[in-house]
């Protein structure tokens, strides 16, 4: 039995390793190809080269896309986190008729396929003369990102001692003061985590942005353009940089979410 156990455990470990290899090979590949001189990388690999990074560095369109991405990402992070905080607190504190409708509306957007979201947004926003603007991308990403912010903050609120609020009220604090001095400080790590994570989601979202952005393309939409046009390892260079910035945001969020627990 013990022997069989070891073989099975070994096989299971091997299986996990293969899954991780499958998941991460394209990501790692993109890094390697971005530093490789070949236009069509294959085995054996070509020479080390930073050519593709130089090309994107010198491309004004990439810079413009980058600027749009950052503007959209920052705005969306703030909007989604504010909306998500309100939603999370509402779910935490109140019971009302139609609450399940409220929650469904708040949390369902990520389950709608992006092409359908894109089409619906485009049709609606062009009707109100907003399609093709940066605002339209912000509106669409606000819809898609606020559920994530809400979920993150809601989880944190559920860790709060419910007596904390009551104590604040008993000591004469009104609802606003309680929000300002008790709830927001308690939820602060989650609020920052929500800001970073929604920003990262917005950074990588290309499909809906592609439908509604018109000429104000964000960087991921530029990548889609590159994919449709000529084959170019520039995609790998942009992708690697985007990956590094997203990862920085996620690790910051992770540290923020973890540290209060460790201190206790």
């Amino acid at each position: 039995m013990g022997n069989e156990n070891r073989i099975i455990n070994l096989l299971l470990k091997l299986h996990i390793a293969l899954c991780l290899l499958f998941i991460f090979a394209p990501i790692a590949g993109s890094f390697v190809f971005s530093l490789n001189s070949d236009r069509f990388p294959s085995l054996p690999l070509g020479e080390f080269s930073t050519e593709w990074y130089r090309l994107i560095w010198e491309d004004p369109l990439v810079w413009q896309g980058f600027a749009n991405t950052v503007v959209v990402g920052l705005t969306v992070a703030v909007i989604a986190t504010v909306l998500g905080f309100g939603g999370a607190y509402t779910d935490f504190r109140y019971n009302f008729t139609g609450k399940s409708f409220y929650l469904a509306l708040a949390l369902l957007p990520p389950t709608i396929p992006v092409v359908i979201m894109g089409l619906a947004m485009l049709a609606f926003l062009s009707r109100v003369n907003l399609s093709g603007t940066t605002i339209s991308v912000i509106i669409a990403h606000g819809v898609m990102c606020s559920p994530f912010a809400m979920a993150i903050i809601r989880l944190r609120l559920s860790q709060m001692d419910p007596d904390l609020e009551a104590a604040s009220w008993n000591m004469g604090g009104n609802q606003w003061q309680t929000l300002r001095y008790v709830i927001i400080p308690f939820a602060k790590p989650a609020i920052f985590a929500a800001l970073f994570i929604t920003m990262a989601v917005s950074f990588d979202e290309f499909a809906v942005a592609w439908f509604v952005s018109g000429l104000n393309e964000t960087l991921p939409v530029k990548i889609l353009g590159f994919l449709q046009g000529q084959v170019s390892p520039r995609i790998n260079a942009i992708g690697s940089l985007a990956f590094l910035s997203s990862m920085t945001l996620i690790i910051l969020a992770q540290l923020l979410l973890r540290s209060p627990e460790d201190k206790k």
Binding site: I23, P26, G239, A242, F243
Partner: peptide, 27 residues
């Protein structure tokens, strides 16, 4: 944590990378 990482990589970039892996002359 490791399995969450892929959500924050561009799916487009991964697909482009897969093209390089899977093409007839690919890896």
């Amino acid at each position: 944590f490791i399995l969450i990482i892929p959500f924050f990589t561009s799916y487009l970039v991964r697909v482009y990378s897969l093209q390089v892996f899977l093409s007839d002359a690919g890896i």
